[in-house]
């Protein structure tokens, strides 16, 4: 199972902060997961496609071509607001 985490404005677009899914067939990397999550949901698709939304795989920032096989957690991170 893959845990997908949504932070900030993505929480609203996804309707929750977390989804647990089996890794979908044909979804090999982060870019493919972005597309798969938004396949039936234009608002979430657009939110995930924003260039300022980064991804972390198993707790470390990862590029869009990072492979997902054997991974446990993908987090989508919009711009932050600390301090």
């Amino acid at each position: 199972m893959l845990t997908v985490l949504f932070f900030g404005r993505l929480t609203d677009a996804a309707g929750s902060g977390e989804r647990r899914i089996p890794l979908p067939p044909g979804v090999a990397d982060v870019a493919a997961l972005r597309g798969w999550l938004g396949r039936d949901d234009p608002a979430l698709r657009d939110a995930l496609a924003a260039p300022d939304v980064r991804a972390a795989v198993d707790g470390a920032l990862a590029p869009d071509d990072a492979p997902l096989l054997g991974r446990e957690e993908v987090a989508f991170l919009p711009p932050v607001s600390g301090g």
Partner: peptide, 26 residues
């Protein structure tokens, strides 16, 4: 440290006010 925390520390802020709620970004 404050300049970097403001722009890079992974926190997401949501303000709740009389007109509803909104996410705040750097």
């Amino acid at each position: 440290l404050m300049d970097r925390l403001k722009t890079e520390a992974p926190f997401w802020k949501r303000e709740h006010g009389p007109v509803g709620e909104r996410w705040i970004e750097a």
